[in-house]
Design a protein around this nucleic acid. Structure first.
Lengths: 181, 181
DNA sequence: TTCCGACCGTACGATCCGTACTATACGGTC
DNA sequence: GACCGTATAGTACGGATCGTACGGTCGGAA
């Protein structure tokens, strides 16, 4: 079954989890689902993401077959080995600490004025929030169930809402003449 | 001056900014300062970080000289080219969006129970908060000035405090029988 | 004087990433 | 029915990055 041992990264488990939810899918389908759910908390560049199913299949975690018509895209599905690896990972309560990577804070660290960076950041959060709220309205995954994808999308919406309010509070303090910190 | 063109990453600018604050330093000094300030919002594995000053020096952004005694460590300092690159980057108000990478949320996405993950996460934030509050008390960088490193440290403290309170609120809701989302 | 732990760093192969490019399907339109 | 624009659906490639493991160096205590 397993042919070539590989290290499983968070991205690997993201693919396994998506396949568990969606059933047999193409890499493109998986990428779409990623963007609508967990991408907020686990970013993957598309070149990395497209390579992952093939890598997992080569190690025995996924089955691979090809469409017989049209683009002859590859279709992937969990094998028993893949499902077992996913279940084992999910069952363990250990997780790497949260990482926040923020180039704007890095610029402030280097001496930049926070205000213009915050204004741009505010726009970005507003755009993302609208995008996620759109997914929440239209997707088959509804905010009323308690599945993983739904919780994740709701967490993303909460994250952008909170960021907006925190930025607004900071900017208001700045304009009132305070120096928040 | 410039010998071999390289791409400057966030990590590159972190090194330049640290050197701008500290003056001539060894990679180890820089790493220590990183941990006490911006590492909360820009993580760099030590193997990557140690390699960066040499890479920047080879491209002309840093000067390099060696201690004459003891461990004969290498000492790096900004060149004019390095300072110019840093200033230009700081002056531009564009920054990549904030990225949050959270393996715990990824596990919840895959179906894990949030509660045990949150308890562990709570411990981690509490530990980090204590560590940062220690830096704030003892460092030469004081929370009363408004330099970049100080703001960054204060932001890190605020981040961990907020995370703790958010986790506590979520756990309290869970224990009260609610399903927050 | 030798041992230990903190300090300080490098080697190396696997993985990941950004940029650029390719190619296919599909609807409209001239 | 050939053309064209847009969305779809990827691949190629070289440099950057990463985790694991290992290697030396220094001061102090035993």
């Amino acid at each position: 079954m397993e042919r070539k041992p590989i290290r499983l990264s968070g991205t690997s488990y993201a693919v396994l989890a998506l396949l568990s939810h969606l059933g047999e899918s193409t890499p493109y389908d998986l990428k779409q689902a990623l963007v609508r759910s967990i991408e907020n908390f686990w970013q993957v560049p598309h070149t990395t993401f497209y390579a992952e199913p093939a890598r997992l299949a080569a190690a025995g975690y996924l089955s691979e077959r090809q469409e017989q018509h049209g683009r002859r895209r590859k279709l992937y599905a969990l094998t028993d080995q893949g499902r077992a690896a996913l279940d084992e990972w999910v069952a363990s309560p250990v997780a790497a600490p949260q990482e926040v990577r923020d180039e704007a804070i890095l610029k402030v660290f280097a001496g930049a004025d926070p205000a213009p960076l915050l204004h741009r950041r505010r726009e970005w959060h507003a755009t993302k929030l609208a995008e996620l709220e759109g997914y929440a309205q239209h997707d088959e995954w509804r905010l009323t169930d308690h599945t993983g994808p739904t919780r994740t999308l709701a967490t993303g919406i909460a994250y952008h809402r909170f960021s907006l309010s925190a930025i607004d509070a900071y900017l208001a303090a700045l304009e009132a003449g305070d120096q928040p910190w």
